[in-house]
């Protein structure tokens, strides 16, 4: 097969390329072909580059643009599209993920619930549960992963129900009847307690369930 074929269709002029050739060799062939077809292609024509099953990368695409530009042509589009991904990744430094905070290493798919859970209602999910609403006293939420409540948590929450001590319980207003993480159980104190005014998060630290303000000042 001819490594460079020019064809016209409804969209315009298509340059079919055989990408089995070395890229530099291919560029030389393109130059030769276009110069030979000088009269066939008008000035400033925008062509379509079809490279078959192989996608050019960002650098190669740029090189082709420069080449055609020097020959008085433009490139309308690439088929298949230019693979920009690796180039983008090269340009932008990969953020260093700091793994000292395992709080939101979600396990399993998350279940999102958009309602209030009332007394007697019980939710179990193998993964993380996110509740956009309140959990009232007498209701229970059991997850093998984390439990995140965007609302008041007043009922029973059991995170890491299969024994995962990394699991956490987060709530905008954390005032549960009982809090369980993995095999640890805590309960609300018997005295009157102040209603928390900001989001709190409960997790296991040194074999104990601790509750901390979520927003650290």
């Amino acid at each position: 097969m001819e490594p460079v074929i020019l064809k016209g269709n409804r969209e315009g002029v298509v340059v079919h390329l055989d990408c089995n050739l070395d890229f530099n060799e291919l560029c030389a062939r393109i130059e030769a072909k276009i110069k030979a077809a000088d009269t066939f292609l008008g000035n400033k024509t925008e062509v379509i580059i079809n490279s078959g099953s192989v996608a050019f990368n960002f650098g190669q695409a740029q090189q082709l643009r420069d080449l055609l530009d020097s020959l008085g042509l433009g490139i309308k589009k690439f088929i298949p599209e230019v693979n920009n991904q690796e180039e983008v990744l090269k340009d932008i430094p990969v953020p260093q993920v700091v793994i000292d905070d395992t709080r939101f290493l979600a396990q399993g798919p998350a279940l999102i619930i958009r309602k209030n859970l009332r007394s007697g209602q019980s939710i179990f999910h193998d993964g993380t549960i996110i509740i956009l609403g309140d959990v009232n006293p007498g209701a229970e939420v059991i997850a093998t992963g984390h439990i995140l409540v965007i609302g008041n948590l007043r009922g029973i929450a059991h995170a890491g129900a299969k024994g995962d001590t990394r699991a956490v319980v987060f709530a905008s207003r954390l005032q549960p009847t009982q809090l369980r993480i993995a095999n640890f159980i805590t309960r609300a104190p018997d005295e009157e307690v102040l209603v928390p005014l900001e989001p709190e998060i409960a997790r296991i630290k040194d074999e104990m369930v601790v509750i901390e303000k979520y927003m650290q000042k």
Partner: peptide, 8 residues
């Protein structure tokens, strides 16, 4: 009885 939070 005020024992709700102890139920397991």
């Amino acid at each position: 009885m005020g024992l709700e939070n102890r139920i397991v």
